[in-house]
Design a protein around this nucleic acid. Structure first.
Lengths: 140, 140
DNA sequence: ACTATTCATATGGTTTTAGTAGGAATTGAA
DNA sequence: TTCAATTCCTACTAAAACCATATGAATAGT
């Protein structure tokens, strides 16, 4: 049902790598090799992160990528949203017009609750938290 | 990324319908018509619910379906799991052998946390809660 | 015998996922 | 000025998942 795609997982690993090399320009080739992720696939993920203002790039030889913000200011939610847009586990959670049942739809509230919970969790966790292994397993 | 499939949503609506007609044998045809869900698709969902012991059936004319347990004893988690098996937003959350990185995998903890949170939420909500519209939006 | 229902299984179209591939554009350095 | 290293851009594809539709057999009540 609820699957995290490789795009999102790779994006996070890429960004953690950048966070671990804060201040340096990092070649995608290095990320690909060290993280063992397809270079060409990574290249496809990059534009989302650029467009969302999470990373900056420099072209040409000795180019590379660098975080646009401090790791503490990048939430997992931002990363996810940069790739997949608004978080909506069902369409009717995002757009109320989607389903004519939505007025008296019993399950709707369930999906809304679950959706908010996921969204909230992802928002409270930053790249820095991941980097420092600072994820508590207690439910907030 | 994170989508609730129609199978799950239809299953829940089907079960709510059964809950609303507790004690009676219900025809799938009625569910299909009242809930406006493809009859043939519903038929495909039924076996999962039967195998998990959520519903009972009676064949032949005047047959039908009925809940096998009280609505208060059926959790959403059970319903989801009956259709999709164990809840695992990434494979490495379920089986630790899946990925050789899992020892020192930074994001793993994040997925584990999110997975547990989703799992917990679905477990605390029963069919009865849905039926009585008893879903609080506060994060538990 | 007839009808209404569940049960079993096969088939198919569309979308998403997870890549691969080729080459253009840019830049630094020799 | 040339070369090499890098990002950027776009097209393509195989496989899986999703969302059904279709056909008919088995069963049971009337």
């Amino acid at each position: 049902m609820i699957k995290i795609t490789t795009k999102i997982r790779y994006a996070i690993r890429l960004l953690i790598f950048l966070a671990q090399h804060e201040g340096e320009m990092v070649f995608l080739k290095d990320v690909s090799e060290k993280e063992n992720i397809s270079f060409k696939y990574l290249e496809q993920i990059i534009p989302y992160l650029k467009n969302s203002g999470l990373i900056l790039s420099k072209r040409g030889a000795r180019g590379g990528y660098i975080l646009a913000k401090k790791p503490s200011q990048i939430t997992i939610k931002e990363i996810v949203q940069s790739i997949e847009g608004p978080i909506a586990i069902v369409e009717c959670v995002a757009s109320s017009e989607y389903c004519n049942r939505s007025n008296n739809c019993v399950p709707n509230k369930l999906w809304k609750k679950l959706n908010e919970q996921i969204s909230d969790t992802l928002e409270t966790i930053t790249l820095e938290d991941l980097m420092l292994n600072r994820i508590s397993m207690e439910v907030s």
